[in-house]
Design a protein around this nucleic acid. Structure first.
Length: 359
DNA sequence: AAGCCGTGGGG
DNA sequence: TCCCCAAGGCT
């Protein structure tokens, strides 16, 4: 696009006006508590707003401050994260909170350069927190911004480092300077992402509603590359319960701490498919992970199925139904146990936003 | 630096 | 039902 400076200013004003009027009301936009903004940005990494909303409220109710997060056992942090995916984010967030508590007097750094050094905070997240929470004039580039800028400029979508640099340069050229009394950089960055999320979507962009239509080279003609096709796979899990006095327990598998996939999380014991052919499932659910659709069947235990388990019984753990909600369950385990009414769906209650903490 | 890490909702 | 995601970071 390479707008002349007055046109760049016009673009910024137009976008700002649109954002003020159309920004969705989201909990992390009601606060300037850097900790809350940090949490939201980590949760939003590769994750839809809808999925974040529920977890965000629960997370902040349970860990309202950096110190409270730092002091919590990792399993508790993972338990609240359960269902959000990319569990390493939760571990890194936890680690960063511990580092900040131990080394930085419990205060989140206020510049992108310092934030960038913390685990789980990369190029995008450091710029997002620095601009939104602290008003730093730095450009945020996420998937939305990249798509918006490529469409605006008419440059084809590419994964080359040259293309990345082009987008970064364009983004940097359009970021407003810091001004007192407002947060122009933070609002501008959020406005770009909001535009990408609600108007300039990957498929079927709503160009006729776009505030910067006049600045756009492509106006919806821009193509995005096709994805790899999803695969399908059938999997089977065992439901095995027992009674100890008045408490009911269910048998779970605790994934090893060094597993690459969902380490330390709890799931139902997996059964080999060839052991369940003669059985009718107690429950069927679909579950998609990355590029695979899983068609999941859950079978109630009997002696034959117990013998089909890949591990010896001792290697599984008996967990009380009452404590399931506090366990770091995999998303699938949580889904299955909820469908079977063995754990309650969480009541979603939003915490009151903190009083503005504008400096 | 390309590949890996998860998910529930919506079309 | 089947497919497509979405505000990245790390190794």
């Amino acid at each position: 696009m390479d707008l002349p400076s007055e046109q760049a200013a016009d673009f910024r004003r137009t976008l700002a006006r649109w954002y003020k009027q159309h920004a969705r009301s989201l909990p992390w936009r009601e606060t300037r508590d850097p900790y809350r903004i940090w949490d939201s940005e980590v949760m939003l990494q590769q994750t839809r707003v809808n999925a974040v909303l529920e977890h965000y409220a629960r997370f902040l109710r349970k860990f309202p401050t950096i110190v409270s997060l730092a002091l919590a056992p990792e399993a508790d942090v993972l338990a609240v994260w359960s269902g959000l995916g990319y569990y390493r984010r939760a571990r890194m967030l936890h680690k960063a909170a511990q580092f900040i508590t131990a080394e930085l007097d419990g205060v989140l750094p206020s510049t992108s350069a310092e934030l960038r050094k913390l685990p789980g905070i990369g190029e995008y997240t450091s710029a997002a927190i620095a601009s939104i929470a602290f008003g730093e004039s730095i450009a945020v580039v996420d998937g939305n911004v990249e798509r918006v800028l490529l469409r605006l400029t008419g440059r084809p979508e590419q994964t080359t480092s040259e293309s990345k640099r082009f987008v970064a340069d364009q983004a940097a050229a359009l970021v407003p300077q810091r001004r007192s009394g407002t947060n122009a950089p933070g609002d501008h960055n959020q406005a770009r992402m909001e535009l990408g999320a609600t108007i300039c979507m990957p498929k079927g962009p709503l160009c006729l509603q776009c505030p910067v239509y006049d600045f756009c080279r492509t106006r919806g003609e821009h193509k995005t590359e096709a994805r790899e096709k999803m695969r399908s796979r059938r999997v089977a899990y065992l439901l095995h319960q027992r009674k100890r006095g008045s408490v009911i327990e269910v048998m779970l598998h605790h994934r090893p701490a060094d597993a690459s996939l969902m380490p330390g999380m709890y799931e139902l014991p997996e059964l080999p498919m060839d052991g369940v052919e003669a059985y009718t499932p107690t429950l069927r659910v679909r579950h998609s992970i990355t590029n695979t659709n899983y068609y999941v069947e859950v079978f109630t235990a009997d002696k034959t199925l117990l013998r089909a388990l890949p591990l010896s019984i001792r290697e599984y753990e008996w967990c009380r139904l009452g404590q399931l909600a506090d366990l770091p369950l995999t998303g699938l385990a949580r889904k299955v146990l909820r469908r079977l009414h063995l754990i309650a769906s969480p009541g979603v209650r939003m915490p009151q936003p903190e009083t503005m903490m504008r400096q």
